[in-house]
Amino acid sequence: MIPLLKAKEPFRFYTRLHLSELTGLRATTLVQLVQLIKEVPGSCVYHHTHRFLQQHQFLSPEPPNDFAYWVSEILSEKELGERLASIDIMQFSRIHDLREKIILVIEEYLKEERFAQLKFAREGEEFHFIKSVSFVIPTNYLVDNLADFVEIMKKITFDSIYFHIFEARLRLEKKTNDFSFWIEHSLEDKELADKLADLDPYTRTLDDLRAAIINIIDKRFSNR
């Protein structure tokens, strides 16, 4: 039974809707790709490391980011694609640091595999840089206890989950996800907060992520 203990502060669910803005920038080689990754706005790096998760959330397994997908499928650099795909995004709390890591991985590969820089994409298969414009909007869902929180979790959109888990952490540069933050500070349940913070959202579909959050909360109170 999930307790009805009242939180010090209520939790407002937000949603984040994004619009894709085109930059007109495109890369046909690895050298161009890494150069442009250095120059584009952070919202571009965010878009290309997170868009796939959301658009193809029903596909599993799935390539976790656009850079990895393009390098593997278009340039046929499977090893570099694997290295990019396996970057642990969870360890970064700033887009700046994630960008540096991506650049480092590609530049190291280019040093090791000199022929890689000769590969180029066919016309029509270039890498197009896009940035995410995010609109953050409060929803009408406001809860002040965990039982209601779980009920709302069951019906909020993927966009809302996405905002509180991914966007809050990385793009808005909070140290943890919003759910964990509220549970720790308003419900003073650090153990539960830590469990949710430890979830790796990058290796699940959004539906699985929703189920995992609900399951962790249910489990926490099932033996009480």
């Binding site: 809707l17 994004h18 619009l19 658009q55 414009v133 995010s134 609109f135 953050v136 808005l172």
Partner: peptide, 29 residues
């Protein structure tokens, strides 16, 4: 998930809003 008219409506409304908000992260409080 991606190509029904409800997503299209959402994008158009956001597009209209973007004309009044030049920034990358728009907080509609």
């Amino acid at each position: 998930n991606n190509f029904l008219i409800t997503r299209h409506l959402r994008d158009y409304i956001l597009l209209f809003l973007s004309l009044y908000y030049p920034e990358d992260i728009v907080h509609l409080g």
